[in-house]
Nucleic acid binder design. Structure first.
Lengths: 201, 201
DNA sequence: AAATTAAATGAACATTGTTCAGTATTCCAA
DNA sequence: TTGGAATACTGAACAATGTTCATTTAATTT
């Protein structure tokens, strides 16, 4: 009779509402500075209701982290239209840095904050989001190797090196450690150096 | 009459005692999971006494972060005996990665956690610790350029690129993001790739 | 020995995540 | 239509946190 379905839909809607409010608050005030009460206020429900829809704060953080990866993935998918793997790899770095620049708090949640990892561990799950993202980078590196780049290198460590580099560039800015360099835009300028290096490999 | 001096010395001693206890607790339980009460218990003084010696928790975190940089600096100073700048740069990377591996919580405090930066901002100070460390890397890069390496590159962005890379390698491990790579020892294996790249520049 | 200064205390407060017994609402069968 | 059952929602209450500050204790000077 469709009632069960409608209820399920309504539950899903409030769940989404909570997540959207949480995401907005996180972007505004920073992940650390948002309380369950803030979120409850924003969606105009009680504290207890939040706990009906999410087991605890970690569950909210994990769900949000997953939303972040969906967005990053959709940006990466666009790159599939770049046929040359080296050009694709170069562009992927730009996309990654741009994403971190536009969504610093979300980036933090995805790649630095421990909470989502705790959630995954608690429920004996795998970090599929990270797995997929890393595979994307690794595959690009392997495709580059197939057409002659990166001779004498191994794909896996090299992929981790490249990921680490762009992650480091972004996370040092987000953790407010990059300003002492005196660079105008550290990730952009440093990534430009990396592109120059790539041409020699 | 020396009483003032003795008192100043005693104050300094208790301050050190608090910091040492805090450092031990941080290494044991992780920075996030140590409370002022834990520290007070460890040194067998009351909560209030901690606040006599440190304005707030950020002040403790900042003082500890500074101790971490002193240790890292002393490890870097040993490298001054390596005359070839490129060999020095390569060795510095190893030292950096080793330090992060041995002191993950301290590393987090030095390069990821916001508290020490908040403390610095509150008192209108500069991040001298980071400044000095980055200068060390930049100088090594410049020395390499003087003897013909890194042609066509600029020292500052390149130094930030290298710092970002090793920082990324370490911080992804510490934030538990690196296990999905399947690598045994991600920083070590990825840094080995970087060394191979350096030889081509 | 008294007075003054310095050091140490811990009860108390506001804020946090979290729980859960209770209330309100919705649903469906009689 | 209505009663009872299932579902959804509530917010008071709890423990733990960082922090403050009036009070007590100790040390020093007069």
């Amino acid at each position: 009779m469709g009632v069960t379905e409608r209820k399920a839909r309504e539950k899903e809607e409030l769940r989404s509402l909570i997540l959207e409010a949480a995401m907005r608050l996180f972007a505004e005030k920073g992940v650390e500075n948002v309380t369950i009460r803030n979120i409850a206020d924003a969606v105009e429900y009680s504290i207890g209701t939040i706990y009906v829809y999410f087991k605890d704060k970690n569950a909210i953080l994990h769900a949000l982290h997953t939303k972040g990866f969906a967005e990053l993935r959709s940006r990466f998918l666009v790159l599939m239209h770049v046929n040359n793997p080296m050009e694709r790899l170069k562009a992927a770095g730009h996309v990654y840095i741009q994403f971190a620049h536009e969504n610093p708090e979300m980036y933090n949640l995805m790649f630095s904050i421990i909470a989502p990892m705790d959630f995954i561990e608690t429920w004996n799950n795998e970090w599929n989001e990270g797995q997929a993202t890393f595979s994307f980078v690794r595959d690009m590196v392997q495709d580059c190797m197939k057409i002659g780049y990166f001779g004498g290198h191994s794909a896996l460590p090299l992929a981790y090196m490249i990921w680490s580099m762009v992650h480091g560039m972004c996370s040092l800015v987000i953790s407010r450690r990059a300003s002492i360099t005196g660079l105008e835009n550290p990730p952009a300028e440093a990534y430009a150096e990396f592109l120059r290096i790539l041409d020699k490999l």
